[in-house]
Design a protein around this nucleic acid. Structure first.
Lengths: 262, 262
DNA sequence: CAGGTTAGTTTATGGTGTAAGGAGTCGCAA
DNA sequence: TTGCGACTCCTTACACCATAAACTAACCTG
């Protein structure tokens, strides 16, 4: 199920996202046994360990020794909790990318870090991009990217497109790897086993597969003669593909820079 | 919940995906009132109209005047149904991109078509990319892209990265727009209304937002002086961003081509 | 017509998010 | 000191989800 937060009370939503670090003043009633931060941390731990699909209010509550309903005094609903998780996780992103050697190495470092971050917290990729979460760390992360990209000197309207392209690329590339890992963990079937069961069936059902899809066959073949391996989009290739794709993208940005200067 | 198909019976899964068009021979027992194709079509209709979140076995069954359980004689489970939906939908993609004027215009046309396809069937973006569905139309779609990309003359290992980058970009760019539309439909709150409720809160809670996040503020401002509008990532900008991003990407590919030739 | 196979139903199980209401806890004002 | 009101947390309940199991009814083949 896709969740959209903040439908109800935009003010409550924002005050949670931008909540100050320290606890509030003493209030009547029993001492709160939990904090929003503890709940968000527990939720992040659940999602990190078992994936977004396993994130339920009950699971988070159990991890804290409470029931699911106990969380609702701290967090209005699950969608809001996911937003809080998202923003808090983004806070763990590196922020410093020196521009001394120009924007390109900085952007390369940024892309590698963001990719690694997504692989550490794959569930982040599943948070709906529809409405930005508008939390402090989301803006901080955007600020980091823009600081690097401003080094290109491109004008604003172009920079928007470039920022989008870079973001999409990193998200997508990380998403494929994350999905593969998650599937392997969730099903208990390794990628190799999975392909081993399916590749003979392809020829059986596909009826002359090699002739019908020559280019797909060609691109799926492994370059070095490491035989008994028929895995087009495997994690092993993913690093290399990321490198190639990123280089192409950065070359394109350089072309845009050259055009804007010349 | 994220679903992974084909854990159980790889053979059954493949035979469904590659099932021939005509109906099978007569079998004992009552005449089947449904067909796999009818079920898949109904499921696609549900997903197109109400989004992937609304796709339940019950909803599909109701659309066909049956109970949810009736579907299980045709389709082993929901994950498999989603795979069938995915592959069938991909069959609606255009396939012909003449290369007479070179690969670049062909790739531009391809990107525009695929983006439009994703916007017509946003749920396709939510099908897990972990394990390829391995259906006939998925391969056909890959074949189409590779036929265009082969025009670059790039070697295989580079082409893999390029194909990935292009795919990720189009997916990502379409995904943002699709998510925004879906959110607006699901919540009944238009994007304008949503931003109108939140932008003042940003300043209120963000405490000197403009100074803390100068670049985010800068990039969010609208270029033409069309005031009373504070929408950084709106659908309106999306077309333009797509254009810019795609141009950058294609420029990068051209650079790779030049490098490989020179 | 009998047997066996199949289509589709009903029922049941264990999961989900969360609304409603109640029990106990504590700060503060009278 | 007492009690009110605010507060935390629980139990219960509801509507939904996927799907396993058992059952009925339809139909082909012997």
């Amino acid at each position: 199920m896709v969740l959209y937060a903040g439908q109800g009370d935009a003010r409550r939503s924002m005050s949670l996202l931008w909540r100050p670090a320290g606890g509030g003043p003493d209030r009547p009633g029993p001492k709160p046994g939990l904090t929003v931060d503890a709940i968000v941390d527990a939720a992040i731990a659940v999602a990190d360990e078992h994936g977004m699909a396993a994130l339920s209010m009950r699971a988070v509550g159990e991890r804290l020794g409470r029931t699911a309903m106990a969380l609702y005094t701290y967090v209005p609903n699950k969608a809001e909790l996911v937003d809080l998780m998202y923003d808090k996780a983004l806070g763990r992103l590196p922020v410093d990318y020196p521009l001394e050697r120009g924007w390109r190495p900085a952007l390369e470092a940024w892309a590698a870090d963001v990719r690694a971050f997504y692989l550490r917290h794959p569930w982040v990729l599943q948070v709906s991009q529809a409405r930005p979460v508008l939390g402090p760390h989301e803006f901080a992360a955007l600020e980091v990217l823009l600081r690097v990209l401003r080094g290109t000197g491109l004008e604003r309207s172009v920079l928007r497109g470039v920022a989008g392209a870079v973001t999409q690329f990193v998200r997508g590339a990380a998403g494929v790897v994350a999905d593969v890992r998650q599937a392997a963990r969730a099903t208990g079937v390794s990628d190799e086993e999975w392909w081993f069961a399916r590749s003979p069936l392809l020829e059986e059902f596909g009826g002359g597969f090699g002739e019908r899809f020559p280019l797909s066959t060609w691109i799926g073949e492994v370059d070095p003669p490491a035989a008994d391996d028929c895995t087009p989009y495997l994690e092993r290739d993913a690093d290399w593909n990321f490198e190639v794709g990123l280089r192409v993208l950065l070359d394109g940005i350089e072309a845009a820079v050259a055009r804007s200067v010349g």
